[in-house]
Simulated assay, not measured.
Amino acid sequence: MNLKPFTLNELKDLIAVEQGESPYYSGPKLVKFFNQVGIRDVYGPRGFTGDGLSSKSSISRKAYALNRLEKINGSIQFKNFMEYFVNYLSSQLDLDEETEFITKINKIIKLDGYSIEKIDEKYIITGVEIYDEYIEAKVHFEDIQKQIIDEIRKAKYTIWVAIAWFTDEILFKELVSKSKQGLNVQVIICDDQINTKGGLQFKDYFETYKLSQWGWYGNIMHNKFCIIDLKTVISGSYNWTKKAQYNAESIEVKHGRDLAEQYADEFMKLKGK
């Protein structure tokens, strides 16, 4: 999240209002807000102290807020700070005050292409390049089937699966459950004996594409990835088979809009084969 200098200056006035105005936060409280996203400042007898701050003279609350906003501007820390600050504040206000405050912030950041929206009772930052800045990834080497199930159960809108071999009835039932909830579930698998003998009736429940071998050398669809809600990708060595649970396998669970869209583009190409 990257804001222009004018926007940062406007924000600092909203974050560090003068005493007597509302919502007012003391120096120690402002330090706590920024420390929540990785800053390591201290508020002591001489005021604000920390990396890049002068130890010889104290600065005002507004000067401190602006300095720290500038320090984290252009990073995922900025997005995290704004979401933490807004969600904390909203929990302290009544509904009318909360609405007024969110309106004020949105007026400030909208010219830079961002906005604050409430999704599932939590405020998040949306807008340009939000998802391009940072990809959260976690690697799993054990309990892989459980990790996949956990991600499937979080799905709210779409689940697109491109898996060479899919014979795991437990994972199949999880997809069936999501399909019955109204989610768009699509599956691409190899059209071969392994999947045929697996006996799972994909076409009875989902939009299904079985890809045959192609080319002189009998090329196959060997992908192993799953896209959830166009924001989460599961990929790795793990085929969704019964046997895979007993192999030495790995998956990565990655969260990032731009990354998910790249996988979705490939999924669409595979559907056209």
Rank of each mutant, 00 (worst) to 15 (best):
D132N: 15
F172P: 08
E207Y: 05
E133D: 12
F166Y: 15
D168G: 06
Q181Y: 01
H140G: 04
E174C: 02
S212E: 12
K203V: 03
S179T: 07
F202M: 01
Q201M: 05
K104H: 07
A164R: 11
N184Y: 10
T99S: 14
I159L: 05
E142Q: 11
K197S: 07
I102R: 03
T103P: 07
K118C: 14
F78S: 03
V187F: 00
Q201P: 08
E133Y: 09
K146Q: 14
F85T: 08
S212Y: 01
I163C: 15
Y84T: 06
Q181T: 10
V86S: 04
S91P: 01
E97N: 05
E98F: 04
V161P: 03
I108E: 04
K154A: 01
E121M: 11
L95Q: 14
E117N: 08
A162L: 08
K107S: 11
I76A: 13
F81N: 00
I119C: 04
V86P: 02
L93W: 14
D204H: 01
E100N: 10
L93D: 00
G127Y: 12
L171I: 12
Y157V: 07
T196W: 05
L93V: 06
H140Q: 09
Q147A: 14
K197D: 15
K197H: 10
I119F: 08
D192Q: 02
G127H: 10
E169K: 15
K107T: 12
Y157E: 11
K122I: 07
D168W: 09
Y123W: 03
E136L: 13
H140T: 01
